[in-house]
Each structure stands twice: as structure tokens, then as C-alpha cells.
């Protein structure tokens, strides 16, 4: 599943339509304002019904709404079909006011305090692989948002929301909490770092080792 691609697909259709209609409305309004000003000394029209134009217009609106909604539901459906069986699962937990990332079936958990930029936790991902995110919260509702992925999902206590993400190339992106969750909501940031599969494996191994040596 590729939220970024789907976002661009829908935005690429809806934004041009919106701009075109906006231009039409502005043009009609500008024309009307100039052409029908009282200063021209004409009499106002007495026609108040358009028995042909009105039903036709309704039909046109219904067709536009139907087309748009089918298209939108279709793209949204593609997203859901993308749920596969990824090798790697990460349990993401939001809490007041930071995040923890637990790599399931390993002892590795990454967390931080979010007090300063350097204390933001990093979610490490392998490039080119689907990764299952199991999202939940320890206290109030939070929201996991990675603007680069064009995706966000709310984290509820006592409930797990699951979705897959895939980084198509290496990178380092910012993520943040999007829903208000208390006074330090504004600094509840994290980082998402995508590295090659081999680099990811060696990182996970070193994390395991440090967990074991600590224990």
C-alpha cells in the first residue's frame, strides 16, 4: 500500500476540478457584477423559473457526485487490499508526551522523552519492505502522523489500529502527534528513518545485543 501515491492520484483529480469550478464561478460573478449593475439603467428580469435548465443542472451535479465518489471509494479500496503479511511488525505506543516503538518478537524497544529534538525517538524501517504498524496508546487519544507518507492514524487506549507502511527509498522524515493530547502535544515529535535492509538488520542486531548486555 502506498498512501503517498494514492494521495497524489486523488489530489491530482480533485484539485484541478476545484480550480476550474472556482475560475468559472469567479468569471460568472465578475461578468454579472459588471453587466447587471444598476448604473446601466436596465429593468430587472421577471423570469424566475428555468424549467429545463434546473433539472438538467441537477442531473449534471448527480453525475459529478457519482463519478467523484466512485473514484474516491475505488482508490480507498486499493489501499485496504494492500494489507499483506509483513515479516516485520512494530508496536507503536503513544503516551503523554512521546512515543515508543517496540519491534515485535524481539526485545528491542526504542523510546525517548520528546523534550528536545535530540530526544525524539526514531522509528527505523527497512527500505522496500512492508512493515506492519500496530498502533495504540497508553493514556489518551494520540495520532501518529508522518507527513511524508501522507498518512495518519489515531492511537486509542485499549484498542489497536493496524496498517502497513513501506518506505520506497532511504530517507529521514519527521513525524508528529496530530490530535490534541494535552499541553505538550506541540512537541510530541518523532523521526522515521529508512535504511537498506542490510543496514536495518545490523542495526536491529546491535540493538538486541545492547538489550542483552544491559540484562
Amino acid at each position: 500500500m502506498n498512501f503517498r501515491h494514492d494521495f497524489n492520484e486523488v489530489f491530482g483529480v480533485e484539485a484541478p476540478i476545484a480550480i476550474a469550478v472556482m475560475v468559472i464561478i469567479c468569471a460568472i460573478v465578475a461578468f454579472t457584477v459588471i453587466r447587471y449593475r444598476a448604473g446601466r439603467g436596465h429593468e430587472p428580469s421577471k423570469v424566475a423559473k428555468h424549467p429545463v435548465a434546473e433539472p438538467l443542472y441537477v442531473v449534471a451535479l448527480v453525475i459529478i457526485a457519482l463519478g467523484l465518489s466512485i473514484f474516491v471509494a475505488h482508490v480507498n479500496g486499493q489501499e485496504r487490499r494492500g494489507l499483506g503479511k509483513p515479516q516485520l511488525s512494530v508496536r507503536v505506543v503513544g503516551f503523554q508526551w512521546c512515543w515508543s516503538f517496540h519491534y515485535e518478537h524481539t526485545p528491542v524497544t526504542v523510546t525517548g522523552t520528546c523534550l528536545t529534538k535530540s530526544q525524539d525517538p526514531t522509528l527505523m524501517l527497512p527500505v522496500g519492505e512492508d512493515v506492519r504498524i500496530d498502533l495504540t496508546s497508553n493514556d489518551v487519544v494520540h495520532e501518529f502522523w508522518v507527513p511524508y507518507f501522507r498518512f495518519k492514524m489515531e492511537a486509542f487506549p485499549h484498542h489497536v489500529n493496524s496498517f502497513d507502511v513501506r518506505a520506497t527509498h532511504p530517507g529521514d522524515w519527521v513525524g508528529r502527534c496530530a490530535v490534541y493530547c494535552g499541553i505538550f502535544h506541540y512537541r510530541m515529535d518523532f523521526r522515521v528513518k529508512a535504511v537498506s535492509a542490510s543496514a536495518f538488520d545490523s542495526w536491529l542486531r546491535s540493538q538486541r545485543a545492547s538489550v542483552h548486555s544491559a540484562a
Binding site: F3, F7, E14, L68
Partner: peptide
Amino acid sequence: VMLASPTLDYMLHDT
């Protein structure tokens, strides 16, 4: 209308 499209709302919601 954009926000009523889930794929766009996933990005733009709560922003």
C-alpha cells in the same frame, strides 16, 4: 470535498 476523500483526509486531517 477533498477532506471527504479518505485518501486525502489521511494526510490533511487535524492539520
